[in-house]
Design a protein around this nucleic acid. Structure first.
Length: 558
RNA sequence: GCGCCUAUAGCUCAGCGGAUAGAGCAUCGGUCUUCGGAACCGAGGGUCGUGGGUUCGAAUCCCUCUAGGCGCGCCA
């Protein structure tokens, strides 16, 4: 299915073989072979693939790299995909693919259909992807949207690469922030009913809390006033919490993001994971009591400082929950791999969480944490505050409604998670026509339109002969289409979905260029028309697959 | 002070050990008898933050420094 990836792998095999044969023949000193790397040269004159293996080998052996290359080329077995193998100074081996092999891939892509671009790397191993997991104490803002899109796109790619993926949202429904939210809501509730009350210090001041209180009053009246305060805070709070979670869920759905599991923090205490996890750590000698609190002795694992698990007042910290949570992920639910996507403000939490995982006897490599850097929102030059507690916020929902789901997703995926980004609302709107999103989608719609025309004219291109696709624009398009499996592989490996966005643009560019140079549906040449219809249909498939992996729509018309 | 992230074209960003550093936007100049001009073709524009080092080869790896961001709670 993944022909190019196989070619790449095949080339690596061939090179390795050639090298060891050269060693056996005494043409090369017997040293341990360095890793064989094969890549796409940026200059097309250097072929489809190139390897600098001889240069690497030269370092290990002290032999002239050109001589190594020459020796190896003579020993490389011929292969049906490969046209020419050449040596280029200072010691590259360049490969060119046979164009008839290339054109045949059009048929292969059409046969593969939706599964084209999928590569089985995971072999069914189970991956949990936990992301967003925002405290349900307020609506989502743009920064959360970034994590949401990142996670969702990664889930798509990992699924396409043979992993069994579960998407999970961790609901922080325990702890002091929830408390503050409950009390804030109660205060607003009282205020709306004419009672003098104040939002406690450290509480949530956003107008949405008042809105929430009003909604609850509209539906259930003032019945919580009759309850004693602690009871009222709790009951009203839980009502508010449920609504908050529903709101978050619907905001995410607007972005096209859904979850398989909504996991409650509180359940970790109800079901005993917390107790078990801590006793495991205690057995390992990682738990100590000092200064009236219970600590995780992370210094024993090379951390800068120890961390409190249970406060002096007996209440567990959020760190305690996370210990239990990761115990549950790995030792109860037994995921092979766990990926957490956190905001930049949680960076400091990464190493101690890895330490916990190690202390629980789990190989720390099984936990991957992706840190997505901050998003700042602005309108032109004006910075927009997005802090939940301070009051005025622009919600993710407002942004999505203003900019559109597909554009939002593409925008978020266009930058690596490592870079901070500015989300300029003015620009996002102003650019909507020139937006790369539309450029890519337009290519897809354009193909759809061509296929519609063909259908109108009653052309059945099922018997199209792809070997007629010999011109440069056609072959360039095919070569680009054949890159998708490699991109998918890279994304699955690096967990960096932004490569998809760049690939999508590249592919669209190559298609548009082909389009202006090659007439597809022509009355003069029915045979060529059929061949090109096949090409275009395959391109449509690849474009759609790429867009779908990003969680975007591939429109037939726009 | 310590940890993490970032610094590449006017702007927003890719590239992260290979052969002449790329894209989009912006600027300038071209392309329409026929499939969607939301398009295509071309041009200009770069001491890859600084200074060292490793290497046959460095934007890419290591160290120094500078600038910006985020952390360093018995908050989450």
């Amino acid at each position: 299915m993944n022909k190019v990836a196989i070619v790449k792998q095949r080339l690596i095999e061939l090179l390795t073989q050639a090298a060891s044969e050269a060693q056996q023949l005494g043409k090369l000193p017997s040293v341990a072979l360095p890793e064989v790397a094969v890549e796409h040269p940026q200059n097309p004159e250097h072929g489809d693939y190139a390897s600098s293996f001889p240069l690497k080998l030269a370092r290990a052996t002290g032999v002239n790299p050109l001589a190594i290359a020459e020796n190896m080329v003579g020993l490389i077995v011929s292969s049906p995909e490969i046209d020419t193998i050449t040596v280029a100074p200072p010691g590259f081996i360049n490969f060119t693919l046979k164009s008839d092999w290339l054109t045949r891939q059009v048929d292969s892509i059409l046969v593969a259909g939706d599964s084209y671009g999928s590569v089985d790397l995971g072999r069914g191993s189970r991956v949990q992807l936990e992301f967003v997991s925002v405290n349900p104490t307020g609506p989502l803002h743009v920064g959360h949207g970034r994590g949401a899109i990142l996670g969702d796109a990664l889930a798509n790619v990992l699924t396409a690469t043979g992993y069994k993926v579960e998407k999970e949202y961790y609901i922080n429904d325990a702890g002091s922030q929830i408390d503050a939210f409950y009390r804030s809501l109660y205060a607003r509730y009282q205020q709306c009913l004419g009672i003098d009350a104040e939002v406690p210090t450290g509480g949530y001041l956003g107008g949405y809390v008042t809105d929430l209180a009003k909604e609850i009053i509209a539906e259930t009246g003032d019945r919580f006033l009759a309850l004693p305060e602690p009871e009222a805070v709790l009951q009203l709070g839980q009502l508010g919490l449920d609504r908050m979670i529903k709101l978050i869920r619907s905001d995410l759905e607007l972005l096209g993001v859904t979850f398989d599991v909504w996991f409650s923090e509180r359940s970790l205490y109800d079901k005993g994971q917390y107790q078990t996890a801590v006793s495991l750590l205690r057995q390992g000698g990682y738990i100590a009591e000092k200064e009236g609190a219970i600590w995780f002795v992370s210094t024993a694992l090379g951390e800068d400082k120890d961390n409190v698990v249970v406060r002096g007042d007996g209440s567990p910290t959020y760190f305690a929950s996370d210990i239990a949570y990761h115990y549950d992920k790995f030792l109860v639910r037994k995921f092979d791999k766990v990926i957490n996507i956190w905001g930049a403000d949680h960076q400091g939490h990464v190493s101690r969480m890895k330490a916990v995982v190690g202390a629980l006897g789990i190989a720390p490599e099984r936990l991957k944490v992706i840190i997505s850097q901050l998003v700042t929102l602005r309108r032109g030059d004006e910075l927009v505050r997005i802090s939940k507690r301070s009051g005025d916020i622009i919600t993710l929902r407002e942004v999505v409604e203003e900019v559109g789901t597909d554009a939002c997703r593409f925008f978020f995926l266009s930058r690596s998670a490592d870079s901070q980004m500015d989300f300029d609302l003015e620009l996002a709107k102003k650019q909507s026509v020139d937006n790369p999103v539309y450029y890519v989608q337009y290519a897809h719609a354009r193909i759809a339109s061509i296929l519609r025309l063909a259908q109108q004219r009653g052309i059945d291109y099922g018997d199209g002969d792809v070997s007629l696709l010999t011109t440069e624009p056609e072959l360039t398009l095919i070569r680009k289409m054949l890159l998708l499996p490699e991109i998918v592989e890279i994304v699955a490996h690096t967990l960096e979905p932004h490569h998809l966005a760049y690939y999508a643009q590249d592919l669209a560019t190559v298609f548009h260029s082909f389009y202006t140079q090659c007439r597809v549906v022509s009355r003069d040449d029915e045979i060529l028309t059929k061949a090109r219809l096949k090409l275009v249909a395959a391109a449509k498939l690849v474009l759609a697959k790429t867009l779908n992996l990003m969680g975007m729509t591939a429109p037939e018309k726009m």
